[in-house]
Design a protein around this nucleic acid. Structure first.
Lengths: 349, 349
DNA sequence: TTGAATAACTTAATCGATTACATTTTTAAC
DNA sequence: GTTAAAAATGTAATCGATTAAGTTATTCAA
């Protein structure tokens, strides 16, 4: 078998400021200044240094810089599950802003494991990261609480939030988002609407459910608790819970799902039970993931501006690091995307 | 508006080895050794140090350690597009192995921008990362070539590969994978099979196409070049190319797509043209993304063990860093997943 | 009890960039 | 031509952990 032979630790050590200084015939301080504060150095010297940098192929050692400056130009992003497509776009947005400000993004998949989340949090005091952006509440509360108490700890939440913690947070108005979906279903005559929620321990799920209930109340409709089911945002949770609901004697005629994957799961459950969507059952999702446009029927859903959330979150973080004031809570707008998975209430029902 | 007030740079500086040494009543060298090589320190001292660490809440400064050790315990993973669900699972696998070995994963979305890729590569010589794992060939060839020439540069490829570079690589046998799909379609009587390929500049796409052609040749069938179309692995590429092909007079009866998203795009194109899948057109994808189980019809596809690829790639990287021999090319097995999107060739055709 | 070998520590140099402080050079005003 | 102010540069300390080299303490054999 062809192998990649024993690697010799690079014998060619990288050039350092000293090398550049020697080549340019100046002191290391001048080199450093020429690079960081060019305006504090004479035209001529600047040129000499630039030339020496080119000649030597110098680029500054990040560890040394971090040590001296106590900053790493790295932001940790903690998310519950990297395989969830919802987060991809948020991350794109985060990355974009981070990169253009010279920051790197270190991704922390907490994998539903508190120990791991802890590890990632520790990167900040150890100077490996400058701040933490949380995309999940699914980590030990005390972990977050403790940091939030230290007012110097750069911590930003995005997409979700903690009820009782005053953290800079960027998310969507979930209550209103849900209302848009429910009003739409009510307008189409549905009265038996089921809800496949995310974990109700999650504040955004409670908000969405609240939006749901508000709409019913406005129409003097009661919500039947048996129509509320919890899932974990996965396809299969939607499928399973959907199946249970669809097999009830008085099955709902419409579903509101707390994310698109569960909505797609419900659609599949309906298909397996020979129920037509939207003929027999209407389904509305949340998030507007790319895939929704390609399922059958195309998914009616509530759009979240995911890249924007990412961009804003990273901006907040950079503001915090620059000691600028930052809003405690900032919400972005949702939008109902009407496609084909929800229709009029069936006559026969 | 409620804001998060000006952050005071943490006044409470972190404890250092010195602090621990003072509290424990030993030298810093002893502290360091007690933590790194406990067996070289007496039972009693070890206990004192442990206690002092607990008391002070010490945890070592990563920048200082990196500087001294010239290693960062960080691996950069460069991928073309983080929003592509194919990569999520690969990343999960990478993360898993990295984390359990005390390494962090820094994600680099090259966003199809050569400049960015360059930036990420530079993290290694500047000591911010110990190695690079490439999940794409879509970056400047010279960038990779240059590094590959330095035999000390820790570089691993996964999922894809460069034709003419001897890099440690882990991927799937694409030719064989494609053959499984095509043989299946041939067995069902199809003779007019279209191929929606990824960019043909991509070696894995050439391999897949080769597998395709081999199967035809074995059956003495010719491949009509007009049935070959290139896409960029997106839903919409599949849709567009699929639409074009399906509107031909002698439209193909089956499609082989180089990934699942394009396959789903083709299915949608067929639906829009009132063609039944698999009644009128059969479609086979590649990758076996989660979503394939939830479309209508469920997607027949070629499975790639994505998490495994990720795990193996990271293992290779760690081996390289430990100066162990590493195979130049390692392939994993694909598997044909038969679901509902491909069926017999229509009679009428 | 002595000496050699080993174990347990300590001292101090080191990694490389940054920057406070000190020194030299230039500029500009009179 | 002086001189004060401003600009440019140099010197050396610093960030915090690691570790080579040196010192002291302990063990054990004879």
């Amino acid at each position: 078998m062809l192998t990649w032979g024993n690697r010799q630790k690079p014998n060619t050590t990288m050039p350092t400021v000293k090398d550049v200084a020697r080549v340019a015939g100046v002191s290391t301080a001048t080199v450093s200044r020429a690079l960081a504060n060019p305006e504090k150095v004479s035209e001529a010297t600047r040129a000499k240094v630039a030339q020496a940098v080119r000649e030597t192929g110098y680029s500054p050692n990040a560890a040394a810089r971090s040590l001296r400056r106590s900053e790493s130009k790295t932001i940790v992003v903690i998310l519950p599950d990297i395989a969830n497509p919802f987060f991809s776009d948020v991350i794109s947005g985060l990355e974009e802003v981070a990169h253009s400000a010279g920051y790197k993004v270190l991704l922390g998949d907490s994998a539903h494991d508190p120990k791991r989340a802890q590890d990632y949090f520790d990167l900040v005091p150890t100077n490996q990261a400058d701040g933490i952006i949380l995309l999940t509440t699914e980590i030990p509360y005390t972990l977050v609480k403790d940091r939030q108490l230290k007012s110097g700890f750069p911590l930003v939440m995005a997409c979700e939030y903690f009820d009782d913690l005053e953290l800079p947070t960027i998310y969507v108005d979930n209550e209103k988002g849900a209302s848009k979906a429910i009003d739409y279903l009510l307008d189409m005559g549905h009265t038996h609407i089921a809800s496949i929620s995310g974990p109700i321990s999650n504040p955004i799920c409670r908000d969405r459910h609240q939006g749901f209930l508000n709409c019913l109340r406005k129409k003097q409709l009661n919500f039947d608790e048996k129509y509320l089911r919890q899932g974990d945002f996965s396809f299969s949770a939607g499928y399973q819970q959907g199946r249970v609901l669809l097999q009830m004697k008085d099955r709902p005629t419409a579903f509101f799902c707390h994310n698109d994957e569960m909505a797609v799961g419900v659609i599949k459950a309906a298909r397996d039970l020979d129920l037509k969507v939207p003929g027999d059952v209407s389904v509305v999702g949340f998030d507007n993931i790319k895939f929704g446009e390609y399922c059958e029927p195309e998914l009616t859903t509530v759009h979240q501006p995911r890249e924007d959330i990412g961009r804003q979150a990273m901006k907040m973080m950079l503001d915090i690091l620059a000691s600028n004031d930052v809003p405690i809570r900032q919400t972005l707008r949702t939008q109902l995307i009407v496609r084909g998975s929800a229709g009029a209430k069936p006559q026969t029902h």
